[in-house]
Design a protein around this nucleic acid. Sequence first.
RNA 1: GGCGCGUUGGAGAAGUGGCUUAACUCACCAGCCUUUCACGCUGGCAUCCAGGGGUUCGAAUCCCCUACGCGUCACCA
Length: 492
Amino acid sequence: MENYRLRFAPSPTGPLHIGGARSALFNYFLAKKHKGCFVMRMEDTDLERSNKASEKNIKDSLKWLGMDWDEGIDIGGDYGPYRQMERLDIYKEAIDKLLAEGKAYYCFCSEDDLTSEKEAQQQRGETPKYSGKCRNLTKEQQQELLDKGTPHVIRLNVPKGEQIVVHDLVRGDVSFETDGIGDFIIVKSDGIPVYNFAVVLDDVTMKISHIIRGEEHLSNTPRQIAVYNALGYDVPKFAHISLILGRDDEGKMTKMSKRHGSTSVVAYQQQGFLPEAIVNFLALLGWSPDGEEELFTMDELIKQFSLEKVSKSPAVFDIEKLKWINGMYIRKASAERLLEYGLPFLKKAGLVKRNPKMAEMIWAMMSIDALKNHITCFSELPDIINKYRSKVSYDDEVAAMVKENRETVMTVMNAMKAKLEEYKTLNSDTYKQILKEIKNETGIGGRDLFHTIRLAKTGEGEGPDLDKLAVIMGRDLMLERTKEFLTFAENI
RNA sequence: GGCGCGUUGGAGAAGUGGCUUAACUCACCAGCCUUUCACGCUGGCAUCCAGGGGUUCGAAUCCCCUACGCGUCACCA
């Protein structure tokens, strides 16, 4: 029985990206499905761009989405430490070994030389790669340059004229020529190993069994395999999942980036998306379930997920679908949760005070509940409420209704006005009572009654239940709207 | 430019040689349900799988070419 150990290894150079979250999710699914281990590690060898704030953001987002790691930063584990900068001695040992065996060598070429070399190669239409100039330096020459303190890097001596085949779980066998790779750098001039080298050591020492990551890493994989080979380690199983594409301003599909608006998990969090909706949506990006159901809890996803059902073609980030999924989860959410997620938006919009009184809280709770069937994310709440509480401008549809059905409309609305003047306070039940009374007294019911009232009060044919609308608007506003409508109708 | 990957409807996407008269989901349309709206339910929505050639009794599925899209070629990860 194979021991499943998977990992998510972001670099802390920015907030958790949607694509990163999906990679993490797929790794998490597979680990949990096989009762394995989900490791969380940080690749922070880029000193310039790495920062603690990003690390925190990534951790917070992972937790918010419900991906708790079994092993890794903060909580430790048997194969730590879990930040690359804390693992330098592990890399050093491996590098010394490679150097001693002649599988790696010092390179003293200056950056300028390298750049001009690269440009020349590109002009000739060749794949730019290192010429191997320093490969044949003698021990003495090397030592001399080292003693003089010449800046240098360390390169891997990649076998020439060979083929490296990546056995990819989603794309099948993909082969690369080592000649297209060249002797790449494994240690930078500041003495810190480069990603392609460190990642291998980490995955080996942490006993990672499967590596699920974005397709952009596919062309890196042969380099990493060259490192595994040089070190004499077994290669883990790879699975490269397709990129997430977005539509840019011109409608073209490109890799999701800043050009497509929000790309970080927090951005969606702030817009009022539910974590389970994002998890569900992300799972559907490049993976498809068996049946016709598309709404899944985390547990169901873990049970259903399999790499066989992961698609090779790029996945498109469809915000409309995300909204639909989110709307479905909002409808299912409990009143407490709705309030928890919705209230901040109402406060921000000034619809509810910072420290609301009980009555305000109740109003907020009922309003959110009334609108839960009509929103796709919580940020829509204030606009809708404001719309119902501001003056209505009646359009042609309303005018047409009045013309066609003048008598009924006037009867209903006059009765409504009378009732509202009679009832000084209003709640859901009293409003239902009013509707019933109007129906009994006028003999008008059904669509003639409900649709007329809705159109008169909101100018729209669609919206929440009328008794709930009454709570959102309140009695005074409803009376005002009713009078305004009557004036409007009389002038038609 | 080299290397690598992809291309199924308005959109996402299933399908890996015959069960496909191309699932399912979103959107859209029609009907039912609901005293209204929404939810839910039922039905409609690709004569066709980027284009061309080939293999085969049979291809969206295999092979070749072309086009287009994307990724990658860093002392970034």
